[in-house]
Amino acid sequence: MNRDVIITCAVTGAGDTVGRSPHVPVTPAAIAADAIAAARAGAAVVHIHVRDPETGDPSRAVELYRETVTRIRDSGVDVVLNLTAGMGGDLVIDADDPLKPVDGTDLVNALERLPHVEELLPDICTLDCGSLNFGEGNQLYISTPDMLRTGAKRVQELGVKPELEIFDTGQLWFATTLVEEGLIDAPPLFQLCMGIPYGAPADPGVLAAEVNLLPEGANFASFAIGRNQLPWVAQSILAGGHARVGLEDNLYLSRGVKATNEQLTERAVQIVQDLGATVATPDRAREILGLTERSGA
């Protein structure tokens, strides 16, 4: 069991959730406000995506990240910033012509997924460690070994900590290979993502198997989506890891009750404390994760 728990709040994500809850933040101001509220509620880390303010669709626009991050940094609230670098990996194919991408495709190379990271230098950015059949239909998430090596090398050069996003056991195998090749600085940070079709199911046995495959000295967190999110806070802690909540992965506080990011963070804090563990502060999170201090951040 982990008794010194880092809580991450993933505040908006890239999923089709805006129309399903009035609490999903869309504009940079709203995303930043939710991140600040989650930090005040006990999240040591906030995980940030941005969205088109007009449509609510996911975006890779650097100016939207810039405004969001500036608002968080200028708030005076201490929090560890974790920016997604997974946008730009979506491929949707035509069922009749698999070589033809269709609407919904947003596929760019490894370095084109990083301009906001290069400019803003967050504490952490994500690295999605493999390709995946992403749900039903003909959508795939693409992240090849060569792409990942290129991205990992650039993130390492920037001095940003990569959070290695693991959606299935083969991805964990490859991420461990990146560690062995020296492309990931110690201590490595893994995020074990459970219940996302069609990756690793939200099953305690699968989580235990993945934890057993982690390299020595690694830090890890784990989350599950939907109704499993809050129970999985306890599951991850009992397995020795940290926890993640937030509207990216789950819209409900309880059956039929729409949540806010602040409420989900508060509930995670309660679960941590009920287990007899301590909620890590941002400074303690930086110590655990081996993060580099950044001037002006």
Rank of each mutant, 00 (worst) to 15 (best):
Q263L: 06
A29P: 05
L114G: 04
L111R: 02
F190Y: 15
A280V: 03
E180G: 14
T144M: 01
I36C: 10
E210G: 11
N219W: 12
V279E: 01
P231F: 07
G151R: 06
D185W: 13
G296E: 01
H242G: 10
L140N: 04
H47E: 07
L132K: 05
Q139L: 14
K258H: 07
Y198I: 10
I48C: 05
V5D: 04
S222R: 11
L275W: 00
D185M: 14
V62L: 08
N228S: 14
Q191V: 11
G195K: 15
S131Y: 02
A202S: 15
L140Q: 09
V155F: 06
L99S: 14
E210V: 09
A95I: 05
G199T: 14
A234Y: 01
V257N: 02
H49P: 05
A297G: 00
D57Y: 04
A29K: 14
L253I: 12
L64Y: 13
D185F: 13
L81Y: 03
N82Y: 06
E180W: 11
T177C: 09
L81A: 06
K153H: 05
T8H: 09
R267L: 03
F134A: 14
D146G: 00
T105R: 01
E136Y: 10
L120T: 03
G13A: 13
V179K: 09
E157M: 03
I93H: 02
D34G: 09
G86H: 02
V92H: 04
G240C: 06
E63P: 00
P25C: 09
D57R: 10
L120S: 04
E165R: 07
L120G: 05
T27M: 03
A280W: 01
R149L: 00
T150K: 02
P53L: 07
K258Y: 04
A285T: 00
T27E: 06
F134W: 14
Q270K: 08
T144P: 00
E180C: 09
L121W: 01
R154G: 08
D4N: 14
E112N: 04
I36R: 07
D94A: 03
A234I: 03
R73H: 04
A95T: 04
R73P: 08
V155R: 04
A30T: 08
T292Y: 00
V11T: 15
T55C: 01
E210M: 15
E293D: 02
D96N: 13
N250S: 15
E63S: 10
L213V: 09
T8I: 14
L127V: 13
A208R: 15
Y252T: 03
L148M: 11
L121M: 04
D249R: 09
I142Q: 05
A209N: 15
I6W: 11
N261L: 07
N212P: 08
L121Y: 02
V50G: 08
L164K: 09
L81I: 12
F174Q: 07
L107P: 02
P187F: 08
Q139E: 13
T169P: 05
V102E: 03
A32S: 11
A175V: 08
L264T: 06
Q270A: 09
I72G: 11
A285M: 00
V269T: 07
V272R: 02
G217I: 12
A280T: 06
S59F: 08
D283G: 03
R66E: 13
G217W: 10
G104E: 06
I237D: 10
Y141V: 11
T84A: 02
V45F: 08
